[in-house]
Simulated scan of single mutants.
Amino acid sequence: METIKGTVSKIKMLSFTASPLLRFTIGTTNCLIAKHSLNFLGDVKEGMYVVVGGQWNARKQFVVQKYAVYGKTRIMLDMDHYRQSIKVVQK
């Protein structure tokens, strides 16, 4: 299993099935994720720094099997923003 790390850009959903297929780019590398793709959508937004592990397919696309986000995930950032807005309203 190889690993690639970098900033995510161009997140796009390719298929709307029970387990959606997502395409995204890390640097100049095209990546695909099917397994855990809904979790990936919840955790990652464009501009976040991630590490992905997987293998190359015949079309020179990196098929992701595992991923990790450096720092806070998208859900964590949204919760922090929500908590800060509640504190401002209560004051």
Rank of each mutant, 00 (worst) to 15 (best):
L41V: 09
L38A: 08
S15M: 04
F40I: 05
L22N: 00
T29H: 09
K5R: 15
S37W: 01
T28W: 01
K10W: 08
A34E: 15
C31Y: 02
K10D: 15
V8E: 04
G6A: 09
I4F: 10
E46Y: 03
K12H: 11
C31P: 03
M1C: 07
P20T: 03
T28S: 08
L22D: 00
K12M: 09
F40W: 05
N39H: 09
R23H: 09
L38M: 12
P20F: 01
N39A: 10
I26P: 01
K5T: 15
I11E: 04
T7W: 08
K10I: 06
K45D: 10
F40N: 01
T17M: 07
S37Y: 05
L32W: 02
K35W: 11
L14G: 00
T29G: 00
N30C: 14
F40M: 06
E46P: 03
G6W: 07
L21V: 06
T25V: 12
G47V: 07
T29V: 13
L32Y: 09
T28I: 10
N30E: 15
V44S: 01
T29C: 05
S9N: 13
L22I: 06
L21D: 01
H36Y: 13
S9T: 15
L32C: 04
T3M: 10
T7H: 07
E46N: 09
F40Q: 05
A34D: 11
M1W: 10
L32P: 02
H36R: 13
S9R: 13
T29P: 03
G27H: 02
F40S: 02
T25R: 09
L38R: 14
E2M: 14
G6D: 06
V8A: 01
T3Q: 15
L41C: 09
F24A: 01
A18N: 14
N39D: 11
A34C: 15
L41K: 10
I33L: 03
P20I: 04
F40C: 02
L32V: 04
I26M: 03
V44N: 02
M13R: 13
P20L: 02
K5Q: 15
G27Q: 06
N39F: 07
L38H: 06
G6K: 08
F40L: 05
V44Q: 02
S19E: 14
F24E: 03
E46T: 09
C31H: 01
A18F: 10
E46S: 08
I4N: 05
T7K: 12
K35S: 12
K12G: 05
N30H: 11
N39P: 00
G42Y: 10
A18R: 13
K12E: 13
F40P: 01
D43S: 10
T25K: 11
G6T: 09
G42A: 08
T17V: 12
E46R: 01
T3R: 14
L14D: 00
I4G: 05
D43R: 05
S37D: 07
S19N: 14
T17W: 02
